[in-house]
Amino acid sequence: MIANKRDVLAGLMFVGIGVFVFIFAQDYGIGTAAHLGPGVFPMLLSALLTLLGLAITVVALRDHTRTHVTLSWRPLLVISAALLLFGFGLDSLGLFMVVALLVVISRFARAGENIIESVILALVVAAVASLVFVVALGLPVPLWPTF
């Protein structure tokens, strides 16, 4: 049974990234010692990262501290979705709408937020953002939906 799950996971993550980068770096060319190719530094780094990951894993496997990793999926997914939607919608829906949507959606990251408060907050933030970034600072984005 692994006690220190958190650090084992961290170690394996570094190993995974290291191996991935090392494999990819093979294609970039080694060059000569005096004129290093673009593949050398990535290979050095990824080898080092893999070794460090292994070391972290080994140390963690022998460690008896009990840890575990629990992600809070709700805020993680809601916030990511809200930001991605902002990116997708910006050019077609305009700044005012996507800001308001970002505020309203992100407020679902925690249970039990007052929906009326969300809407009011969304309108206020969207109005301020539109005034500051589009009207005052001249950010080149549409303000309103364009079809």
Binding site: L83, F86, G87, V103, R110, L139
Partner: peptide, 20 residues
């Protein structure tokens, strides 16, 4: 609860404005 949506908006607009 009223602050974080504003932080997200600032981040989103801010990062967009780096290179539009």
């Amino acid at each position: 609860r009223m602050l974080y949506p504003a932080i997200l908006v600032l981040c989103a607009i801010g990062v967009y404005s780096v290179s539009n």
